[in-house]
């Protein structure tokens, strides 16, 4: 349902043309949790932006259900950026319901859905708080809720937990897993952390250094929820690390 065909992206800089993605081809099925794993600055984020239609590819094409992504609401997408980017003048509920407001859904219905998803993410009671009144981890939860609430056909996540401390990150990873198991979505999750990739993904696509090309495409068959200190998890991590070296 999501198809990348020879996607190529380069930026023109003063020093010449900088190729960030080279000949990326992949096919992603509905309901997969795909983790794009690669070193920092390898073009993973650009790939997500192209998938969302925020930027065009230089060559090649991205097809969502057979059509190129466009921003005019034909494809419902969710995007969780690296920083939560909550609007400080909106309380948590109206941050979460931004996408429903854009779709002109009635306020009562918007709020009903927001309360439900905030509860799933452990934020009940904080509906009327403003972003500056809550912690960094809570902001990230709200950003995830904002993307999830529009019931996207694809959820794109660009290293959403990279700025968090280890403890908060773990609890968010758990909650994302819970949420994903309850409401299955196609997710493309970008990270440079192998452990995070194994913890969350049903499939790991490893990208090399810039320009991004596929080095390995691996199906993770561990049962969910995954335990990072379990034997199977540790073994798999060693195996993958060995393959990457």
């Amino acid at each position: 349902m999501l198809e990348y065909r020879n996607v190529h992206k380069s930026f023109d800089t003063e020093a010449g043309s900088l190729v960030v993605i080279k000949d990326f081809t992949a096919s992603i099925r509905e309901g997969e949790f795909v983790v794009l794993l690669g070193p920092s600055g390898c073009g993973k984020s650009t790939l997500l932006r192209i998938t969302a239609g925020l930027e065009p590819p230089s060559r090649g094409e991205v097809l969502i259900d057979g059509r190129a992504p466009d921003l005019h609401g034909r494809h419902r997408l969710g995007f969780v950026f690296q920083e939560p980017a909550l609007m400080p003048w909106r309380d948590l509920v109206s941050n979460v319901t931004l996408g429903l407001e854009i779709r002109r859904i009635a306020k009562a219905e918007r709020n009903r859905q927001a309360v439900e998803i905030l509860r799933l993410l452990g934020l009940q009671g904080f509906e009327k708080y403003y972003p500056h009144q809550v912690s960094g981890g809570m902001k990230h939860r709200v950003a995830i809720a904002r993307a999830y609430i529009v019931d996207p056909i694809i959820l794109l996540m660009d290293e959403p937990f990279v700025a968090l401390d280890a403890q908060t990150r773990e609890s968010l990873q758990r909650d994302l897993q819970d949420l994903w198991q309850r409401r299955k979505k196609t997710v493309i999750f970008v990270t440079h952390n192998l452990e995070e990739a194994i913890l969350l993904g049903t499939r790991i696509v490893v990208l090399g250094k810039r320009p991004a090309t596929v080095q390995m495409d691996y199906e993770v068959r561990l049962a969910m929820p995954r335990d990072p200190v379990s034997r199977e998890f540790v073994d798999l991590r060693h195996e993958l690390r060995g393959m990457l070296a």
Partner: peptide, 15 residues
Amino acid sequence: ASPTFVDVARVLGAS
């Protein structure tokens, strides 16, 4: 204006 705010809204289909 923060470009990320604008991107957030664009992805959600804002006019």
